[in-house]
């Protein structure tokens, strides 16, 4: 069963946080354009394979800088391995959010700073951001499970259809399982039908002249 791409997983993660997709979301690969609490949010994704490509990392950082003035909040979504290479404090200083992911989890390591002063905070200050992050991660996993179950349902349905076809073809070849047969008008019958005069006698039942001798 194919697993979800990181773009889809991140999308589910942010949707679970209460964001919604914007119409421009499909415009650029490896980026997500979202709206959260009335603010525009842009997520730049650094794919796992790009970690070994310095140019790509620099391109990502430059891209984040360029977006800083266009969006209320920007995120870098990068593999967890990046956390071992860079100090997350750098992102905090520049108000850029950092989301780290691996094959199972997605964690918001650094929350972004809103550009405009009038931006409302993302979350209620009373809520524990770690709990919210965990909840979002669970919701993301749930959506993936839901998708997996749908795929399993489809496969089960196909399997059942195939089984009916197999049992029908089996029935066509085995029914009736007669031990000794003969041919009568192309029909297979048990051996006690062979040369039995009652077949003709009984088939005339109800016709004129066929009445009981005595009763």
């Amino acid at each position: 069963m194919a697993s979800l791409t990181i773009e889809k997983r991140l999308l589910h993660y942010f949707l679970a946080m209460g964001a919604r997709e914007t119409e421009t979301n499909q415009a650029k690969q490896e980026e997500l354009s979202l709206e959260l609490d009335g603010q525009r949010v842009q997520v730049v994704i650094l794919p796992s394979e790009a970690l070994t490509d310095r140019t790509k990392i620099i391109h990502c950082i430059m891209r984040l800088s360029s977006l800083r003035n266009s969006f209320s909040r920007v995120y870098l979504a990068a593999p967890t391995l990046l956390g071992t290479l860079m100090d997350s404090e750098v992102f905090r200083c520049y108000g850029i959010g950092l989301v780290l992911f691996d094959e199972r989890r997605i964690d918001e390591t650094v929350r972004p700073q809103a550009l405009q002063a009038f931006d409302t905070p993302l979350m209620s200050t009373s809520a524990d951001p770690r709990v919210l992050s965990e909840l979002a991660s669970i919701k993301s996993m749930y959506m993936e499970m839901d998708r997996n179950i749908s795929e399993l349902r489809e496969q089960l349905k196909t399997l059942q259809q195939n089984r009916v076809l197999v049992s029908r073809s089996h029935m066509e070849t085995t029914e009736p399982p007669m031990q000794q047969v003969l041919l009568r008008n192309g029909v297979n019958l048990p051996s006690f039908f062979k040369s039995n005069p009652w077949l003709d006698v009984l088939s005339r039942r109800g016709r004129d002249g066929d009445e009981p001798l005595a009763s």
């Binding site: 019958l189 006690f192 039908f193 077949l199 009984l202 039942r205 109800g206 009981p212």
Partner: peptide
């Protein structure tokens, strides 16, 4: 049982039940 099977196979469908016979 053999007789039952032959009877069921051969007697015409339109030969309806008769309480005298």
């Amino acid at each position: 049982w053999h007789g039952c099977i032959i009877y069921g196979f051969a007697v015409p469908d339109e030969y309806e039940w008769d309480w005298q016979r």
